[in-house]
C-alpha cells in the first residue's frame, strides 16, 4: 500500500514537471553564422585550423631566408590582405584574411 502511494506521488511529480520547450534550447545568435561571414566561419573551423598546423610556417623573411640558404630549400611564400571579422560566437572582432 505504502509502495503504491509513493509510486503515485512520483508519477504526479513527473507529470507536473516542466516539459522542455523551444525556450529551453541552447540560445544561439539570431544571425545565421554562415550569413555573418560564411567564408570565415568555414575557415575558422577546428578542421581548417588543424590544416594550418600541418605546415611549418615562418613569418619573417630573415629567419626563413637564413634557413633556405642553410638547407638549400626553396621558399614558398603565401600572402593575402588582413582584415577583421566579428566572431559569430563571441561577438568580438577577430583577425581574418
Amino acid at each position: 500500500m505504502r509502495f503504491h502511494a509513493t509510486a503515485i506521488c512520483l508519477l504526479l511529480l513527473a507529470g507536473s514537471a516542466r516539459q522542455p520547450s523551444a525556450a529551453d534550447e541552447p540560445r544561439t545568435s539570431d544571425a545565421n553564422p554562415f550569413q555573418v561571414h560564411k567564408n570565415h566561419v568555414r575557415k575558422t573551423s577546428g578542421e581548417y585550423l588543424a590544416c594550418f598546423r600541418r605546415i611549418a610556417w615562418h613569418y619573417d623573411f630573415e629567419t626563413a631566408a637564413e634557413l633556405a640558404r642553410d638547407t638549400g630549400r626553396p621558399m614558398f611564400v603565401i600572402f593575402c590582405r588582413a582584415g577583421s571579422i566579428d566572431d559569430p560566437l563571441t561577438g568580438k572582432p577577430k583577425c581574418a584574411s
Partner: peptide, 28 residues
C-alpha cells in the same frame, strides 16, 4: 583557396622540402 591547399596531403608532404612563409598585406 587555402583550404584546398593546406588540407592536401601531397602539398603538406612537399612543403617539408620548402621553407614556407605566410604573411599578410595590411599587418604593420
Amino acid at each position: 583557396m587555402e583550404y584546398g591547399l593546406y588540407s592536401n596531403d601531397e602539398f603538406a608532404e612537399l612543403s617539408e622540402n620548402f621553407v614556407c612563409v605566410r604573411t599578410y598585406v595590411g599587418v604593420p
